[in-house]
Design a protein around this nucleic acid. Structure first.
Length: 810
RNA sequence: GCCGGGAUGGCGAAACGGGUAGACGCAAGGGACUUAAAAUCCCUCGGAGCCAGCUCCGUGCCGGUUCGAGUCCGGCUCCCGGCACCA
C-alpha cells in the first residue's frame, strides 16, 4: 500500500478536533502560566466569494509550522483565525442580486473555513471571530467611543472623490486617472462632512517606536516614508499693506535670503483677501479650475501653472518686497499651505520661476563643476548677510535662532501623514455609535447601548445625495434619544473596512467575553503578538492604523504593551506558472481544493514552503509539487514495504555512528532553519536525511522515529500516521522537539582544500584535530600542488583551520 | 525623481562573521526492471577545450580591496514594490 494522503489526512484532522489539541490554554486556567506563551498570528482574510487560492495558505502554512514547532518546544501557543468580513464585494453583490451581505458573507466564511481545515492548520477554532458579527463590532464601536472621548475623532469638511454618475463618494483606490474604476465616470473633488481620526497626534510615537520592533527594514522604511517627518521652521512674512503676516513652513530656513517670491495654495483661506482687484478675474478663474481638477490630475500635470495675486510680502531676512503667487504645486494639506519660494535651491521653485520669469538668486555656493539649475546640495551660504560662509546645517540653526529672537518664527516639525478619513458611504460596515442631538451636540453611545445594529435596508445602492444607503432608512436615522429626551439623528456613514482589523488580535485573547472587549489578565499574559505574518500590501495602512489604535488603548491603560506586533514578516506572492500574478482573467489560478485532491494537504504545505524563501514571489509549478509528493512517498517507503508492513530494513537497538551523524545534523539544521523561517532549506535537509536512509539496508528505528518529529510541523498528517504506526498511542503534537547532540555534529576528519594563488588545486582529508604545521606540510607535499609551485618562490602560506590552505607563489 | 528589494545552470533555488559556486528539487538525456507502460531504482546534467585523468572560463555590467570576492567597496544596467510638486 503506497502513501495515500486522502486516507490519512481526514482521519488525523478529525482526531485533532476530537481531542481539542490546539486549544490555547488561558492564563486563568491553573498551571497555564507555568508555560511560556507564544502568540502567532496570520493577517486574517477577507472571505471573498472566489474562495482560497494557493497564495493564501503560503503564509498560513508558515505560521502553522511555527505554531506546531513552538508547541513541541513547550510553549502555550495561541494560534487563532477569523474573518475580516465587512467589505465592499459582499455589498456590491447585494446591489446586483439583493442578497443580504450577511448571507453572502456567512456562506463565504463557511467555504473558507472548510478550505482552511483541509490543510490541517492547527488553529484554535474555538476563538474564531468575524468583524461583521454584532458581538464583535459592538466592541469596534466601543473603541470608537474611546477615541471620540479622547478628542481623537472629529467631523470635518474634507474634499472627497465625488462621482455624480454613481451618486457616491469613492475611495482613492477606486479612482483611476480621475475616473471611477467602475464605469469610467468622471470624478470630482467635493467637500463633504466626514469623520476623521486624529492619527497625526501619534505621528511621532508611531515613528519612534518602530526602532524597537523586529520588523524588516523595508517595512519600517515604508512606514517611515509614509509618516514623512521633516524638520524645519515656520516663518511669518508680513503682507505689504496688511496688518497680517503670511505664515509659511520651510525645511530650508538657511535659504531665506534667496526667497524671491511666495506661493500659496489655491485652497488657502487668504486667497480672496490677498487678491487685488486687477488680478481678481484671473485668480478666480485659476482657483475654479484647480478646484475641478482631481488630485491625480493636478499631480499628473507636468507644467507648472499659477497666477499672480497682486499682493506682496516683505522678506524678513533682507527686507525686499516679493510677489505672492497662487499655484497648485503648493498643497493646502501640508505645512501651512504657503511657501517661500527659493528657486536657487529648490527645483520646483526654479521651474516655476523660469515659467513666470521670476528672479532667481543663489544663496548656496554650488559645488565646483555644478552645471544644473537649482542647487540642493551642501555648500557655503552666499548673498545671505549674516549667514555668509556657513554650511547648510549651521546656517539653518543660525537662521532659526535669529527668527526666534526676532519673534518672526519658530522651529517646527511637519509630517506627511494625514488624519485618517474614517467614514464610508456604505451599508456593510460598522454604524457609528453616536447620536447627533437636536441641540447640535453629539452624544456617543454608552457601552450598554452597544452594539448599534445595522438596520435592514430595502436596497443597497447609495442614496444619491452623497450619503450611504442608511440615510434613507428614516425610522433608523431619526430617533428620540431616551437619555437626553431630544430628537436625534444617527450617522448615515459607516466605518471603513480597516476598523475591524485594527484590534482583532486583541479579541482573539478573549473572543466570547460579553462584558468587555477583553479581560485584562488575558491581555497581559498573551500580548504582544510574537509573530505576525501577512502580505506586504498591508505594510502601511493596516499596520499603521492598528498601531495607532493600540497606542491609544495603551494610553488608556487597556493594553500593557506599546506595540502590538513584536515580530513581523511578509510572505511573498505565489505567481501563476507563467510567472504572472494569479488572476481569473489570466487563467492561471491554482485552486487548493484541486491540488489537495490529487496530492494531499501535506504535499501542498511542503511545496509551498519548498518553492523558495518565504518573503519572495515564486511561480507555481505543477511538476514541482509532484517532486515533493515523491519525497513524501520516499519517506513512506523508508518505513513500509509493499505489503504495508514495517520495512525489514528497520533495525532496533543502538543507532550506528553514521546514522547518528546524519540524524543529528538534520536535527541541528532543521531546528535552526525553522526558527529562522527558512523553511525551504529545512525541507532540503529532511530530503538529504531521507535519501541517506533509503540508500541503506539497515535503518535504525530510533533515528527514524526522531526524524518523524522533525517532519511533524511540516507534514503533520503523515507524521502522525507514522508515529502511530510506530506504536505510539498518543498524538505527537506535544512530543518534545529533538535536540542535536554536539558530539555528532563534528566528524573525525575534515576536507581541507588547497589553493595556489587563489585557485583550487587539491583537497586533503585531514584529522579534525590536525595542527597547522602538519596540514601545511601535507598541502605543500601534494603532487597536485607541487605541479603549481615547482620552480616558483613560495611567498606565503595561509591556513584557515579545518577549511583551507592557501599558497601564494611568485 | 526619491526610498526599498532583487538579478546565480534549461527552471525553482543553495552557499548569510569572504574560504570547494550550484546543496535540495524540477525538467532533460541514458540505463535497469517490465511483454509494454506507469511507478521505482541507478547514472549524466553550468559553458568550452584531442568530455579519460586535466585545463580554461563562469554568480547582471565596469573597476577596486584581498592570498582568495556570489559575498566587501566605488560606479553603472535592467526588473519588482512603495511614495511621488510634502516646500
Amino acid at each position: 500500500m503506497a502513501y495515500d494522503p486522502s486516507r490519512i489526512e481526514p482521519r488525523w484532522q478529525q482526531h485533532w478536533a476530537d481531542h481539542d489539541l490546539f486549544r490555547a490554554v488561558d492564563p486563568t486556567v491553573p498551571g497555564a502560566t507555568d508555560l511560556p506563551k507564544y502568540y502567532v498570528l496570520d493577517m486574517f482574510p477577507y472571505p471573498s466569494g472566489a474562495g482560497l487560492h494557493v497564495g493564501h495558505p503560503e503564509g498560513y502554512t508558515a505560521t502553522d509550522i511555527i505554531a506546531r514547532y513552538k508547541r513541541m518546544r513547550g510553549f502555550n501557543v495561541l494560534h487563532p483565525m477569523g474573518w475580516d468580513s465587512f467589505g465592499l464585494p459582499a455589498e456590491n453583490h447585494a446591489m446586483k442580486t439583493g442578497t443580504h451581505p450577511a448571507v453572502t458573507t456567512r456562506a463565504n466564511i463557511d467555504n473558507f473555513r472548510r478550505q482552511l481545515k483541509m490543510f490541517g492548520f492547527s488553529y484554535d477554532w474555538s476563538r474564531e471571530v468575524a468583524t461583521s458579527h454584532p458581538g464583535y463590532y459592538r466592541w469596534t464601536q466601543w473603541i470608537f467611543t474611546l477615541l471620540y472621548n479622547r478628542g481623537l475623532a472629529y467631523e470635518a469638511e474634507v474634499a472627497v472623490n465625488w462621482c455624480p454618475a454613481l451618486g457616491t463618494v469613492l475611495a482613492n483606490e477606486e479612482v483611476i486617472d480621475g475616473r471611477s474604476e467602475v464605469g469610467g465616470h468622471p470624478v470630482e473633488r467635493r467637500p463633504m462632512k466626514q469623520w476623521m481620526l486624529r492619527i497625526t497626534a501619534y505621528a511621532e510615537r508611531l515613528l519612534e517606536d518602530l526602532d524597537e520592533l523586529d520588523w524588516t527594514d523595508s517595512i519600517k522604511d515604508l512606514q517611515r516614508n509614509w509618516i514623512g517627518r521633516s524638520e524645519g521652521a515656520e516663518v511669518d512674512f508680513p503682507v505689504v499693506g496688511f496688518e497680517r503676516a503670511l505664515r509659511i513652513f520651510t525645511t530650508r530656513p538657511d535659504t531665506m535670503f534667496g526667497a524671491t517670491y511666495m506661493v500659496i495654495s489655491p485652497e488657502h483661506p487668504w486667497v480672496r483677501e490677498l487678491t487685488t482687484d486687477g488680478q481678481r478675474a484671473a485668480v478666480e478663474a485659476y482657483v475654479e479650475e484647480a478646484r475641478r481638477r482631481s488630485d491625480r490630475d493636478r499631480q499628473a500635470a507636468k507644467e507648472k501653472t499659477g497666477v499672480f495675486s497682486g499682493a506682496f510680502c516683505r522678506n524678513p531676512a533682507n527686507g525686499s518686497e516679493i510677489p505672492v503667487w497662487i499655484a497648485d504645486y503648493v498643497m493646502m494639506g501640508y505645512g501651512t499651505g504657503a511657501i517661500m519660494a527659493v528657486p536657487g535651491q529648490d527645483e520646483r521653485d526654479w521651474e516655476f520661476a523660469e515659467a513666470f520669469d521670476l528672479p532667481i538668486l543663489r544663496t548656496v555656493q554650488p559645488a565646483a563643476g555644478f552645471d544644473g539649475k537649482a542647487y540642493t546640495g551642501d555648500g557655503p551660504a552666499i548673498n545671505s548677510g549674516f549667514l555668509d560662509g556657513l554650511g547648510v546645517d549651521e546656517a539653518k540653526a543660525r537662521m532659526i535662532d535669529w527668527l526666534v529672537e526676532q519673534g518672526l518664527g519658530e522651529r517646527k516639525v511637519n509630517y506627511k501623514l494625514r488624519d485618517w478619513l474614517f467614514s464610508r458611504q456604505r451599508y456593510w460596515g460598522e454604524p457609528f455609535p453616536l447620536l447627533k442631538l437636536a441641540d447640535g451636540t453629539v452624544r456617543v453611545l454608552e457601552p450598554d447601548e452597544l452594539p448599534l445594529m445595522l438596520p435592514e435596508v430595502g436596497k443597497y445602492e447609495p442614496a444619491g445625495t452623497g450619503e450611504g444607503p442608511l440615510a434613507i432608512i428614516d425610522e433608523w436615522m431619526n430617533v428620540e434619544d431616551v437619555r437626553s429626551g431630544q430628537r436625534a439623528r444617527r450617522e448615515s456613514n459607516t466605518m471603513p473596512q480597516w476598523a475591524g482589523s485594527c484590534w482583532y488580535y486583541l479579541r482573539f485573547l478573549d473572543p466570547r467575553n460579553d462584558h468587555e472587549a477583553w479581560a485584562k489578565d488575558k491581555e497581559s499574559y498573551w500580548m504582544p503578538v510574537d509573530l505576525y505574518l501577512g502580505g506586504t500590501e498591508h505594510a502601511v495602512l493596516h499596520l499603521l492604523y492598528a498601531r495607532f489604535w493600540h497606542k491609544v488603548l495603551f494610553d488608556l491603560g487597556l493594553v500593557s504593551t506599546k506595540e502590538p506586533f513584536r515580530k513581523l514578516r511578509n510572505q511573498g506572492m505565489i505567481l501563476g506558472e507563467n510567472s504572472e500574478k494569479m488572476s481569473k482573467s489570466r487563467g492561471n489560478v491554482v485552486n487548493p481544493d484541486d491540488v489537495i485532491r490529487v496530492h494531499g494537504a501535506d504535499s501542498l504545505r511542503l511545496f509551498l514552503m519548498f518553492m523558495g524563501p518565504l518573503d519572495r514571489d515564486k511561480p507555481w509549478s505543477a511538476t514541482g509539487i509532484e517532486g515533493v509528493h515523491r519525497f513524501l512517498d520516499r519517506v513512506w517507503r523508508m518505513f513500509f514495504d509493499e505489503e504495508d508492513r514495517l520495512h525489514a530494513c528497520l533495525t532496533d537497538g543502538p543507532i550506528d555512528d553514521d546514522a547518528q551523524r546524519a540524524l543529528h545534523k538534520c536535527i541541528d539544521q532543521v531546528s535552526q532553519m525553522t526558527e529562522d523561517l527558512r523553511f525551504n532549506t529545512a525541507i532540503s535537509q529532511m530530503m538529504i536525511f531521507t535519501n541517506e536512509m533509503n540508500a541503506r539496508t539497515s535503518r535504525p528505528r530510533a533515528a527514524l522515529e526522531t526524524f518523524v518529529l522533525l517532519l511533524a510541523p511540516y507534514a503533520p498528517h503523515l507524521a502522525e500516521e507514522l508515529w502511530s504506526r510506530l506504536g505510539h498511542e498518543t498524538s505527537l503534537i506535544r512530543e518534545p522537539w529533538p535536540v542535536a547532540d554536539p558530539k555528532w555534529l563534528v566528524s573525525d576528519t575534515v576536507t581541507v582544500v588547497v589553493q595556489v594563488n587563489g585557485k583550487l588545486r587539491d583537497q586533503l582529508e585531514v584529522a579534525a584535530d590536525a595542527d597547522e604545521a602538519q596540514v601545511k606540510e601535507r598541502a605543500l607535499a601534494s603532487p597536485k600542488v607541487k605541479q603549481w609551485t615547482d620552480g616558483k618562490q613560495i611567498v606565503k602560506v595561509i591556513y584557515v583551520p579545518g577549511k583551507l590552505v592557501s599558497v601564494v607563489v611568485k
